[in-house]
């Protein structure tokens, strides 16, 4: 899976939680939860979706490293 495919997978999971998201409008460098209006339950469902899809376990302590979409993709890349 290259970075583009990985980003597509992350965006697909995001859209499952927030169907109103337009993938083209997402800025990889801006805080994701502010762009998409995810509350903490949405966020957890998003991470659960990534866990189911990619098998990556994301501990709560790592949340601060996952602010932007780019950081989420990079974090997953390093653990796949």
């Amino acid at each position: 899976m290259d970075d583009t495919e990985l980003r597509d997978a992350v965006v697909a999971e995001l859209r499952r939680i927030a169907p109103e998201v337009d993938a083209d409008d997402l800025d990889d460098r801006r805080p994701l939860r502010r762009q998409v209006d995810l509350d903490s339950l949405d966020w957890l469902r998003f991470l659960l979706g990534l866990h189911d899809r990619l098998g990556v376990e994301i501990p709560e302590a790592d949340y601060p490293q996952l602010s932007t979409l780019g950081e989420v993709v990079g974090y997953l890349r390093a653990r796949l």
Partner: peptide
């Protein structure tokens, strides 16, 4: 809650809410 969640897989995480 932090300690409880750290000891469990993501599927069993509980929110403060």
């Amino acid at each position: 809650l932090t300690e409880r969640n750290a000891a469990r897989p993501i599927t069993e995480r509980v929110l403060m809410a």
